[in-house]
């Protein structure tokens, strides 16, 4: 924005990076039971089809909170 000062302030960079890192930390750590939940989902799905891995993310869309569960199947 002010090229005559040479470079972007590193504090601004820090703020931008922190905002994103903390947002992602919060969404991953918001449920302490998430690891247990993953294990149980794997157990249930495995009864019917092979599972490679399960990912769970908390998402907020238009003020509605949701759990997005991705089940990756074995080839």
């Amino acid at each position: 924005m002010f090229p005559w000062f040479g470079k972007k302030s590193s504090a601004k960079t820090a703020k931008d990076r922190l905002t994103i890192a903390i947002m992602s930390d919060r969404s991953n750590n918001s449920f302490p039971f998430i690891e247990d939940l993953k294990a149980e989902i794997i157990e249930v799905v495995k009864k019917y089809i092979g599972v490679k891995k399960v990912d769970i993310q908390k998402e907020t869309l238009d003020g509605v909170e949701a759990l997005s569960i991705d089940v990756q199947l074995e080839k």
Partner: peptide, 17 residues
Amino acid sequence: MVQSGEMLNSEDILEIL
């Protein structure tokens, strides 16, 4: 360092946390 933009200022930290 805050003045020269090399250190986060308190408003930024408050906004983040």
